[in-house]
Structures are given as structure tokens and as C-alpha cells.
């Protein structure tokens, strides 16, 4: 199954190697790893996604905690949470076919962040399936993708909401995870809960 770990680690040289080395030793491939500063001074926050057996979660979390530079570890598992990914996509585009891409970008609630004579750059934030959706549409159309840069997943647990609030937000019952893999969910979800 897909595991998502969120960890606070000390912002020091070599810490990422220690974290990555743990997965290397278990022969587990890291699907995505996102690291950046956190709200806690001197600590970075990382989101790590990997494929491993269901039972492996406990041991990975316990092993991460054994690393001296790891301060906090959360095994998100099925808990209600919000996951986002940022993608920059550079597409070959001429003045003749730009408008098509503009339409597409509008539908996917993405943004154009760079416009050059022969290309443009799309910035999109969302769940993985939404980004996959845009890439698929671009690939299937006339457009030629020149470059893709994806941040990997960032995950944060939801706050403690009543189920009524969550329903109003379109996120389902409090304890039910939001299905992020269902492409049909993607655009709708973004419309409902993503701030503009």
C-alpha cells in the first residue's frame, strides 16, 4: 500500500541522507519526497510517500524516530488529510495555438506563469490525479510538452472538524479519507475547498 509519512527533521547537513538511507536499506523506493522549512525554527518538514506492505508502517515510523535528527514523525495512513502537489509544465506554444491552452488552463484552474514566443509555462497546484489529468490532456492534444517539474506530494492532516462541516466542504465524513485517486474528484474538490 501507499504510505505517507510527515516528519520534522533538524535542518542540518546529512539529515536527508539518514532518512533516505533508512528506506534504501529496506529496499523501498521513495515515490516522492518534499522538504522545506516548517513553522518550527531550525526544523524542516518533509512529506515522504512510498510503497510498502501494510505492516511496514509501524516499523518505518519507529525506525525514523530512532534517527537522532528526526524530531517528529506522523504516519498519515488513512487519516483525513489534504495532499497537494505543485507542477510546472512548459509547453511548446505559438501565438496560433495559445488560446487552446488558455482554455485548458482555465478548466483545470491552473495558471500561466511565463509566456515566451515559442513556449509557455503552466503552474498548477492540486492533487496528483489532477496534475496527471492535465498532463494527459496536453499529451493527447496537439500540444508538445517540453518540460515537467513536479514537487512531489505535500500532506497535512485536517483539523478536527465536525462531519457536518466536512460535508459542507465536500470532503465527506470526518473519518473517511478523501479519495485523491479518483480523477472525477479532482476538479470538484479543487472548486470546493481550494482557496482561489
Amino acid at each position: 500500500m501507499l504510505h505517507t509519512f510527515v516528519a520534522y527533521v533538524e535542518d542540518l547537513p546529512g539529515v536527508l541522507t539518514r532518512v533516505a538511507s533508512l528506506f534504501r536499506r529496506l529496499n523501498i523506493n521513495i515515490n516522492s519526497l518534499t522538504v522545506g522549512r516548517s513553522e518550527r525554527p531550525g526544523l524542516s518538514r518533509l512529506t515522504l510517500v512510498c510503497e510498502a506492505s501494510a505492516e511496514a508502517g509501524h516499523r518505518i515510523q519507529a525506525s525514523l524516530f530512532k534517527l537522532e535528527n528526526v524530531v517528529d514523525v506522523d504516519d498519515i495512513a488513512q487519516a483525513p488529510s489534504v495532499t497537494r502537489e505543485l507542477a510546472l509544465i512548459k509547453v511548446a506554444a505559438t501565438p496560433q495555438n495559445r488560446s487552446q491552452i488558455f482554455e485548458l488552463v482555465e478548466v483545470f484552474r491552473a495558471r500561466i506563469v511565463d509566456l515566451a514566443p515559442e513556449s509557455l509555462m503552466i503552474e498548477m497546484t492540486g492533487v496528483e490525479s489532477k496534475i496527471e489529468g492535465l498532463i494527459q490532456v496536453l499529451n493527447e492534444g496537439e500540444e508538445r510538452i517540453l518540460e515537467i517539474c513536479r514537487s512531489g506530494k505535500m500532506t497535512m492532516r485536517r483539523g478536527h472538524h465536525t462531519s457536518r462541516v466536512l460535508r459542507a466542504m465536500g470532503a465527506g465524513a470526518a473519518e473517511r479519507p478523501v479519495s485523491e485517486d479518483d480523477p472525477a474528484n479532482a476538479v470538484e474538490e479543487s472548486a470546493d475547498i481550494e482557496p482561489a
Binding site: E55, H58, R59, A62, S63, F65, K66
Partner: peptide, 8 residues
């Protein structure tokens, strides 16, 4: 004493 040993 080592939680990583539990159910290993």
C-alpha cells in the same frame, strides 16, 4: 526497549 522490534 526498541519500538522498531515490535512485530518485526
Amino acid at each position: 526497549v526498541d519500538p522498531a522490534e515490535i512485530n518485526k
